[in-house]
Design a protein around this nucleic acid. Sequence first.
DNA 1: ATTCAAGGCCAA
DNA 2: TTGGCCTTGAAT
Length: 720
Amino acid sequence: MLAAGMDHSASYLSHFGLSPPQASGDDGGDDSLYQPPASSPPLYQYMPPQHQTPSSSAAAAYSMMGGSNQGCYQLGNVDTAYLFGSTGGNGGGGGGGGVSGSMDGLQQYVAVGGNGSGTPVSAAAAAVNPSATGSELPDTKEGIEELCPVCGDKVSGYHYGLLTCESCKGFFKRTVQNKKVYTCVAERSCHIDKTQRKRCPFCRFQKCLEVGMKLEAVRADRMRGGRNKFGPMYKRDRARKLQMMRQRQMAVQTLRGGVVTSAGANNHHQFAMLAGDAVTLGQYPGSTITSSVSSLHIKQEIQIPQVSSLTSSPDSSPSPIAVALGQAGLGSLTTGAGGTTCVVNQHSQMTLQIVASANGNNNNNNTSSSNNNNNNNNNSTNVTNMTGPNGGVPPSQHQQHHQQTQQQQQQQQQQSVVPASNLLTVNKMWSPPSSPKNYLLSAHQQQQQQHHVPQQQQQQQQMVVDGGGSSSAAATANGGGSGVKGMSPMIRDFVQGLDDREWQSSLFGLLQNQTYNQCEVDLFELMCKVLDQNLFSQVDWARNSVFFKDLKVDDQMKLLQHSWSDMLVLDHIHQHMHNNLANEIMLHNGQKFDLLALGLLGVTTMADCFAQVIDRLQELKFDVGDYICLKFLLLLNPDVKGIGNSKHVHEGHEQVLKALLDYCITANSQVQDKFTKLLSVLPEIHHIATRGEESLYLKHCSGGAPTQTLLMEMLHAKRK
DNA sequence: ATTCAAGGCCAA
DNA sequence: TTGGCCTTGAAT
Ligand SMILES: [Zn+2]
Ligand SMILES: [Zn+2]
C-alpha cells in the first residue's frame, strides 16, 4: 500500500470517523461488515496486521502518519466507519455458545489442590515488591508480568487485550473513543514510563498498540458491563501464567531440595491446574481474597516473571539492553523498546506468505506495495509484530454463520487464517452490522488522504489480505458458514466451535515469546512447550464440547488420556491442509522451528507416513467438517475402558459417526466410499501418535524433556 | 450470586 | 487530560 515511494514511515494511520450510531439499523447491504458475535460492537474491527495491510476496509485503520515531520496519531474511518449503536442483539441468536451445562469439570479438582488462589494478582504483586524486595529473590529480575507493558505501572487487570495499568486503560479508551489525534514533537520514540507517560501521548498510544492493546475491544456503542470475546482469551492467559508460575515454583523447590508435595501426589490436581480454569485471581488490589491460601505462598508464585503470551513484548519500558540483543537477529529496530516484539519474523512471515500464496491463491493484488512501509525511514518505531497473540487473533470466531455478504465472508476468512505478522500497523476495526457508509468521510479522513493514503489503497489492501490469507481459511469459514451443503446442524456446530485463528496465533505467540531475546533455544524443549500449550487448548475445547462436557471429570480424563496424541496429530493435519500451516518457521533468533516435526510429536522419521496420510485425505477431499468429526470420534472413543458413563460415550460416538456418514454421502457423494476411507485413516494417525508418545516418553525418562507439564502428565497417565 | 473488564465520573 | 474509583451487565 502505501506506495512504495511514500514515506509515511509508519503507517498506522488513520482515519476515522465514527459516526453516531443512530442509524443503526440497516446495514444496508452495503458494506459488509460483519457482525460481531456477541456483545457490543467494537469500535474498530480487527484487521490482521499483516504487513501488507494497513488498513481494512470496513474499518478504520489506525496509522501513524508519518507525514512530514512529526508524527501524529489520528483515528479515522475509512470507509466504513460505522458505528452504530446497538448492542446487543445481534442476531444470531444463539449462536454459539453452547449450552452451558455442567461443565465444570476439571475445575473441581482445583479445589483439591492447595493452592488456589484468590488473591488478586496485583495485590500479590504489590505485596511482594515492597516488602520483599531485598529479601526475596534475586531472581526476580522482573516482577514483570505484574507491570504494565506500556508504562511499567501496576497492573489492574486485563484491559483491551492484555494486562495493563488503570491509567493506560483509561488513556487508551479515551484515545479511541474520542478519536484523538496526537503529535509527537520529537522522534516518535519517546520513552514511556510511569513518570513520563503524560509527556507524549503520541508515543504512549503508539506503545499501547505495539504491546497489543486492541482497538476492537473499545465498544462503539459504549455499552457498559458484560463480557466480550476476549474473555476466554484472558482466561486462558491466566491459566497459562499460573501453570508457568507453578512450574517455576516447583523447579525452585526441587533445587532447594524441598519436596514438592502437592503436585506430584495428585494427578488430578495438577491436571486441573493445567487445564485451566482453575483458579481465579482476584482482581483489583483491594479486593477480597476468596480463598484462604496463605499470601506468602502466592507471593512466591507470583513473582515469577514470565512473559505473557498475550503481550508480545514482555518488557515494558525498562530494558534497553534486551532490546539491543534482540535486534541482533534481523530486524532493524531502531527504537529501543518497542521493537522488541517483533522482529521476528520477517522470516517467518515470508515463509508463511510463500506458503499461502502457493496454495492459496490469489491474488490479490498487490500487496506488494504495501508493506514496505514501515521501515524505511526512520524510525519506525513501530516495528513489526508477530503474529502472536497480538497479532493475530481476533476474536471472533464463530460468527460465521448467518449469511453474510461476500465481503463479510472474506473478512472472516482473512481473519481466520492469518498467521502472519505484521507490522505495526495494527488496525483493526470492526464493523458492526449496520454501518452506514455515509459516515465515512470525515475531516480526518480527508486529511489522511492528503497524506497520501487514499482509501482505495486501503481497500486494496484489504482485498489482498483476504485473498492471500486464506485459501484455506476459506475452507474454514465455509465450513462454519451456512454454506456447505449436506452439513448437518451438528457438524455445523462443531465447525463453529473451532477457532483456527486462535490455534495459529497462540502457536506463533508462544514461539515468539519463548525466543524473545534468546540467542538460542532448545528446539526440542520448545516443541514440548508448544505441545503442552496445544494440549491445554485441547482440553479446553473438549471440556466445552457436546457429549464430552456432560461427562464426569474422571471419564473426561480417561478419554483425553487416550486420545490426546491422536488429536494433536489430527489437528496438525487439519492446520496443514486447511489453514496452510507451513512446515517450518523462522524464529526471532534465526533458528528454524520445525512445524512438521511438531505434528509428528517429534518423530521426524514419520514424515513419510504423515505425507501419505495427507495425500490420502486430499484425495478424499477431506474438509473441515470431516476433520472435526474425526476429532470427536477420537475423543469419544468407545473402546476406552473404565468409563463410568460409557453409554453416553457410545451414544456420542454413534451420533458423530452417523453425522459423518450422512455428510460424506450428501456433501461428497462424488468421492467413492469416503466414509470408510476416512475412518481407515485413523489407524495411521494413531500410529504416528503412538510413535510420538513413545519418543516423547523416552526423552522424558532420560531427562530430556520438560517436567511438570500437562504433556508429561498425559504421557504418564497412559502408561501407568 | 459471582466475576471482572468495559464504560462513566470527577477531583486533580 | 489524567487516572483512581465506581457502575454495569454478559458470562460463568
Ligand atoms: Zn500503564
Ligand atoms: Zn513522542
